[in-house]
């Protein structure tokens, strides 16, 4: 059993396009267990009952933003150790700073290639 087979990843993004691109990338990398949610609130609800290893969440979402989700996750015992990669359209340093403070593991800027996504994840979970 390799990481690919074991790791559970949740993709959180309200936009089907962006969600599709991430899921597609993850599947291309060979990740087997991928779930997704379309809002931060729904994601948090599911995560607090059934944590995953890694969350890849978009920043810009209606309602709970990506960082809001991260904050909630870090404040919750069952999700505080879950990996978090922020998907962002901008590389605004203040956004990254806020992410660091909240304990984000890494971030990836859109648009990204599959190798970029892989490398971004590897920096968090080790070689895939």
């Amino acid at each position: 059993m390799s990481i690919k087979d074991q790791i559970k990843i949740m993709v959180v993004d309200d936009m089907a396009t962006s969600r599709g691109l991430v899921i597609n990338g993850l599947e291309e990398i060979g990740i087997k267990n991928i779930t997704y949610e379309t809002t931060g609130d729904a994601a948090f609800e599911v995560l607090s009952k059934a944590p995953v290893h890694l969350v890849i969440s978009d920043m810009n979402m209606p309602g709970m933003s990506g960082l809001d989700l991260l904050k909630s996750m870090r404040e919750n015992a069952s999700t505080k150790r879950t990996g978090f990669i922020l998907l962002t359209g901008s590389d605004d340093p203040s956004l990254v700073q806020r992410g660091i403070k909240l304990g984000m593991n890494n971030f990836i800027k859109k648009p990204f290639s599959v190798p970029q996504l892989k490398s971004c994840m590897e920096r968090v979970i080790g070689k895939i």
Partner: peptide, 17 residues
């Protein structure tokens, strides 16, 4: 950006294969 990715240790074996 002054950012270093936070490495997680899930107890996975490093070499995936």
């Amino acid at each position: 950006m002054g950012f270093q990715p936070l490495v997680m240790d899930f107890g996975f074996d490093g070499d995936g294969d």
